[in-house]
Nucleic acid binder design. Structure first.
Lengths: 185, 185
DNA sequence: GTTGAATCGGAACGCCGGACCCGGTTGAGG
DNA sequence: CCTCAACCGGGTCCGGCGTTCCGATTCAAC
């Protein structure tokens, strides 16, 4: 909120910490020690705490950034011609990105995390909901699904993908379950 | 392996520890402290370690027991008339049971756990595989699925169910994705 | 009943990781 | 160039948890 003009080196270090955190969290999720993040950033642990009040706050900063990125993509897809295709594109893209990013898996898996994502990732919720509603109106997606179900299914896809060794096979099954009958291939 | 006739109180305490562990793990998964398990069992922590070399070993003992129970149910279902119905019954039953049991969720979610389940839960693998193959031969389940995919989808269902607040809604979607086209309802 | 060995219980240890603090350093304005 | 406030770094504290150890206790054989 208050930005009392950060000093130049402070801005630089803050960026380095964010970059290091994004990388480390993507590989190991919340399990990575904070010291490790500081080491990657070439910075002391104290510096991390100067910029982020806790490890959790840093984690949220990284995750929220990704969620907002997804929200932007979703808003762009809202103008696509085929609502069904747009929706399924979005679904697959989110799963693919998140499966490469342990941090997002952890964030989605934690039911306690629902709270913070409800406020910080509000854009993500709204945009994906719009995409879903549009696809349903076009008859491409079954009607008995809402935004919460959608996010739960994304989490389910991530768990399934992580458990299996092969790549992107199970998403198709779940996607097929989402289609309306006349769209089944 | 070697059973040098356990003393009576030792047998009793071992049973109490197992019962307490099953209860505690079911609620909190691997996160529960070992002291808590000992407390529930009305026993000291040292007693737990007399019977199980490590917390992990105790956890496996509980999980393997459940997996063997599932394997028995699967073998019974192999004699049912409708192969498709039998398979989906099994699938739903496993998901329902496991969703009430955090321990099984953790065990399935841990990719590192693949190792021990591959040996200890061998029966579970074999029985569910047989059920799947039979359902596929009867044309009830799509062909591009194997036993590994099946277990990954179970893990996915569990993640999705845990994430959502409502009960047993998402399983239907994933099950629908598993069906062959001519069986879609 | 006696004996001694197995078992019990919980106190103590060691490790690990998150949070904090203070002495040294650096950067930006005068 | 000088100054001082802000920032940096890593050493330290603290709590939690898995594991181990040992004196007290209990079982069961004789």
């Amino acid at each position: 909120m208050d930005k009392p003009v950060l000093r130049a080196d402070a801005r630089r270090n803050r960026a380095k910490v964010l970059a290091a955190a994004e990388e480390a969290f993507a590989v190991d999720g919340l399990a990575v020690p904070l010291d490790e993040i500081a080491r990657i950033a070439g910075v002391g642990a104290g510096t991390v705490y100067r910029h982020f009040p806790s490890k959790e706050a840093l984690f949220q900063a990284v995750v929220v950034d990704r969620l907002e990125q997804f929200a932007r993509e979703a808003r762009e897809l809202l103008t696509a011609e085929d609502p069904g295709e747009a929706f399924f594109d979005f679904f697959k893209r989110v799963v693919q990105q998140a499966s490469r990013n342990r941090a997002l898996c952890d964030a989605l898996a934690e039911t306690t995390g629902l709270g913070f994502k409800a406020s910080a990732g509000h854009d993500f919720r709204a945009a994906s909901q719009a995409l879903l509603t549009r696809a349903q109106a076009a008859g491409a997606v079954r009607e008995d699904i809402d935004g919460d179900d959608l996010r739960a299914l994304i989490a389910g896809c991530l768990a399934a993908e992580r458990y299996s060794l092969e790549e992107r096979h199970l998403v198709r099954i779940i996607v097929d379950g989402l289609r309306t009958l006349r769209n089944k291939t």
